[in-house]
Simulated scan of single mutants.
Amino acid sequence: MKRKKHTASDDDAQIDMTPMLDIVFIMLIFFIVTTTFSSERGLMANRPKDNPNNNEPSKALSIRIDANGQIQMGGRIVDIRRVVANSQTYLAENATETAAIQAHEDTDHGIVVQVMDQVKIAGIQNVSVLVKKD
């Protein structure tokens, strides 16, 4: 009887990767099929549409807030505590239901909210914040 000599190729064990790849692909398909995608919920803003044909002057109360937090009403600087009185004076002279607040982008949001609250206390319920259109 003749004995076989072991060669170098017999010493290297080969692992068959096909079953492992099949399992990986089956798991991948399973996770893709069973994944549910949820839609994110947020606040929807009701913004008015641009109307370039409107040539009537606006009677809305105009308030500007600069980057330092200074409030301007009617071209003069006003303290936050005097916004109610100035708004009521404007309402006595002009029949309006709206106010527009134009704040600088670096203005503290707390000041803008305080001005909005003061204007609502004065009796104006429709308050809008103007944003820069890009």
Rank of each mutant, 00 (worst) to 15 (best):
Met116Gly: 11
Arg47Ile: 15
Phe37Val: 13
Phe31Ser: 09
Ile65Thr: 03
Ile26Arg: 12
Glu105Met: 14
Asp50Gly: 07
Met1Ser: 15
Thr7His: 14
Ala45Arg: 12
Ala100Asn: 15
Thr36Trp: 08
Arg47Gly: 09
Val112Trp: 02
Thr36Gly: 06
Pro52Met: 05
Glu93Asn: 13
Gln114Leu: 10
Ile15Pro: 00
Gln70Trp: 07
Met44Glu: 11
Arg81Trp: 07
His109Arg: 13
Asp12Pro: 01
Gln14Ser: 09
Ile124Asn: 00
Ser128Cys: 09
Thr89Leu: 06
Ser128Arg: 13
Gly42Pro: 03
Ala13Asn: 01
Phe25Lys: 11
Asp10Met: 04
His104Ala: 13
Asn86Ser: 02
Met73Gly: 01
Gly69Glu: 02
Arg76Ser: 11
Lys5Ala: 08
Asn46Lys: 11
Val115Met: 00
Ala85Cys: 02
Arg47Lys: 15
Ala67Asp: 08
Ser39Asn: 09
Gly110Leu: 05
Asn53Thr: 09
Met27Arg: 07
Asn86Thr: 00
Leu28Met: 12
Lys49His: 10
Val112Arg: 03
Ala45Trp: 10
Ala45Pro: 04
His104Ser: 13
Leu130Cys: 01
Pro19Cys: 00
Pro48Ser: 05
Pro48Asn: 05
Ile23Thr: 12
Met116Ser: 09
His6Met: 15
Gln14Asn: 08
Glu40Lys: 14
Gly110Lys: 05
Gly110Trp: 01
Phe25Gln: 11
Ile23Ser: 11
Ala8Gly: 10
Phe37Gly: 02
Ala67Pro: 02
Gln118Cys: 00
Thr96Lys: 02
Ile29Gly: 03
Val78Ser: 02
Thr96Tyr: 03
Leu91His: 02
Gln72Met: 13
Pro57Leu: 15
Lys5His: 06
Ile121Trp: 00
Thr96Cys: 03
Ser58His: 04
His109Gln: 15
Ile80Asp: 04
Val33Cys: 05
Gln114Ser: 12
Val83Tyr: 00
Lys4Ala: 11
Ile29His: 01
Pro48Trp: 03
Asn94Ile: 13
Phe30Thr: 06
Ser62Thr: 14
Arg3Ser: 15
Ala85Val: 07
Ile121Ala: 01
Phe31Cys: 07
Asp106Ile: 06
Asp50Cys: 07
Thr7Asn: 15
Lys4Glu: 14
Asp134Gly: 13
Pro52Phe: 09
Leu21Lys: 07
Gly75Ile: 01
Glu56Thr: 11
Glu56Cys: 01
Ile26Gly: 06
Thr35His: 12
Ala99His: 04
Asn46Leu: 11
Ala103Gln: 08
Ile71Ser: 01
Asn53Cys: 03
Ile80Glu: 03
Thr35Ala: 14
Pro52Asp: 10
Asn94Leu: 01
Ile29Asp: 00
Thr89Ala: 10
Thr96Asp: 02
Leu28Trp: 00
Arg81Phe: 08
Phe37Met: 05
Ala67Tyr: 08
His104Asn: 13
Gln70Glu: 10
Val131Trp: 06
Met20Cys: 06
Gln70Thr: 09
Ala92Gly: 06
Gly123Thr: 02
Thr34Tyr: 01
Gly74Leu: 01
Lys132Pro: 12
Asp106Lys: 10
Asn54Phe: 06
Arg82Glu: 10
Asp79Ile: 06
Ala13Met: 07
Gly123Trp: 00
Asp79Asn: 12
Ser128Trp: 06
Arg64Phe: 11
